[in-house]
Design a protein around this nucleic acid. Sequence first.
DNA 1: TTGACGTATGCCGATATCGGCATACGATGA
DNA 2: TCATCGTATGCCGATATCGGCATACGTCAA
Lengths: 132, 132
Amino acid sequence: MARAATTTDAFNAVAEPRRREILDALAGGERSVTDLVEQLAVAQPVVSKHLRVLREVGLVQVRDEGRQRIYRLEPAPLREVYEWVKDYERLWTERFDLLDAVLEDLKAQQAEPDRHGSQPADAETTDKERES
Amino acid sequence: MARAATTTDAFNAVAEPRRREILDALAGGERSVTDLVEQLAVAQPVVSKHLRVLREVGLVQVRDEGRQRIYRLEPAPLREVYEWVKDYERLWTERFDLLDAVLEDLKAQQAEPDRHGSQPADAETTDKERES
DNA sequence: TTGACGTATGCCGATATCGGCATACGATGA
DNA sequence: TCATCGTATGCCGATATCGGCATACGTCAA
C-alpha cells in the first residue's frame, strides 16, 4: 500500500502547495491555462497536470472557449476540509484562555510570593499572542 | 522530485485519514498509544508511525508516564489549514446567490429576447477580493 | 535477573507523486 | 492545406508513503 492518491480527497488534492495557489488564483475569477502559467510562473505541463487532479476531485470545472480551456473554481469539495478543521479552532482559542489563566496565576504568585524554589516550570508557551 | 513529505505541513500530515482519526481521538483528551490502538482498531506499529509524523509537524506532544507514552493534541499547526480554507466558505455560500442571479437573468432574457449570437465579450470583469 | 508489558524502529514491497522534456492533438487563421 | 497557438498526455527518474512483520528498547514487577 502506498500513500492515498492525490485524487482521493480534497484533503489530498489540497496538500500540494501549487494546487492551492491555483485555487487561490481561480478564486479571483476564471482563468485559462496560459493565464495560470503566467501567474504561477511554472511550466505549462505542470499546470495542466495539477488542473487534472483538481478536476478529478471536483475542485475546478472546465469550459472550452475556442482553443482555450477556461477553468473555474468549484469550492464545494473544500467544505469537507472546512468542516473538519473548524472544530479545532475552538481549541486554539481555548488555549489562549488557558494561557491567560496561567499568566493570571503567575501574577498572583508574584503578588503573594509563595516560593517553592525548585522547578521554573517550563515557560514553553510564552510567545503566541499576535493575531486574532 | 516526489510528493512532499508528510511531515512538511499540517496540510500533508492531515491528508491521511488515519491521522485525522488520531487527532479526533486526541481531541477527546490525552491518550496512550494502546488507547489509540484500541480506539482505532489498527496495528500498534501503524499508530506509532502516524504519531511520529504528527509529532514532527507539531500536532501532538508526548509525555512519558511509566512505561506508557501519553499523547496530547496540539492544535496550533491546524491554524494554517483553517486560515486557508476558511475564505472559501464564503464562496460556497455566495454560489447560491450567484445561481439566483443567473436565474434572474434567464428570466429577463425570456421576457425580452435579445439575441446577439456572437461573443459575449469577455466577462472577465472586475474581481478583486476585498476580504476581511 | 528474568519476564512481561508498552512503544518505537527497521526492513520490505507495492504504489504514486511531481517536474522535465518531448510530443500529440484540436482549433484557428493564412 | 499548412503553420501556429493553447493544452493535454506519455515516459522517465528520484523519492516517499503506508502497512505488515519482526524485533529492539525501556520500565516495572516477581
